[in-house]
């Protein structure tokens, strides 16, 4: 069923007519050319497709696009502020918290949600908060370090 859906995307009002059953992931990637959000499994088990909806990380592969009507969607492309990278993005670069980088957008946005909820998480809280995001290259240790560094940098303010 084609419907007109309106929402804010990376700070800008967006309106498009799409089959409302389609998942947000594919609308972002195919209709809106934002390919930073990745397909990893399509079942919500890997976290590669994570985006922020009203500032909370969600799995865009399991979210019908109609669910974001009137909401604020932020993808990895929208996280930097006028070219200034978010502290998490900087920390991922500085700690080389990635290898192939395919899981990275989802990792960063999941970590964003974690720091929103718990600005100064302990080591084990980070492990717990990130546990549903998969990385096959094995950058886990560095991802944890990057999140710790970003938490410090943000001093509890996101």
């Amino acid at each position: 069923m084609e419907e007109t859906i309106k929402f804010r995307l990376n700070g800008k009002p967006t309106e498009l007519t799409v089959d409302s059953d389609r998942m947000l992931l594919w609308v972002l990637r195919t209709d809106l050319a934002l390919t930073g959000t990745k397909y990893g499994c399509g079942e919500g088990y890997c976290g590669a497709c994570t985006v922020l909806v009203d500032n909370e990380p969600i799995r865009s592969c399991r979210t019908p696009v109609e669910d974001v009507e009137d909401k604020e969607v932020v993808t990895i492309e929208g996280l930097a502020n006028n070219g200034d990278l978010h502290p998490l993005q900087k920390a991922f670069m500085e700690h080389d918290a990635l290898q192939c980088g395919f899981c990275t957008p989802g990792m960063i946005l999941t970590a964003y949600g974690l720091l929103q909820e718990n600005p100064q998480p302990s080591y084990s809280e980070i492990l717990q908060g990130m546990d549903d995001n998969l990385c096959r290259c094995g950058a886990h240790k560095r991802i944890v370090q990057a999140i710790q560094a970003a938490s410090k940098e943000m001093k509890g303010v996101s």
């Binding site: 390919t35 990895i76 492309e77 996280l79 991922f92 080389d96 990635l98 980088g101």
Partner: peptide, 19 residues
């Protein structure tokens, strides 16, 4: 020496084959 394209990897700008 760090990954030359690391910025593109953390901003979603890099185009992987599936992108």
């Amino acid at each position: 020496v760090p990954r030359p394209n690391r910025r593109d990897l953390v901003t979603g700008a890099h185009r992987f084959p599936s992108d």
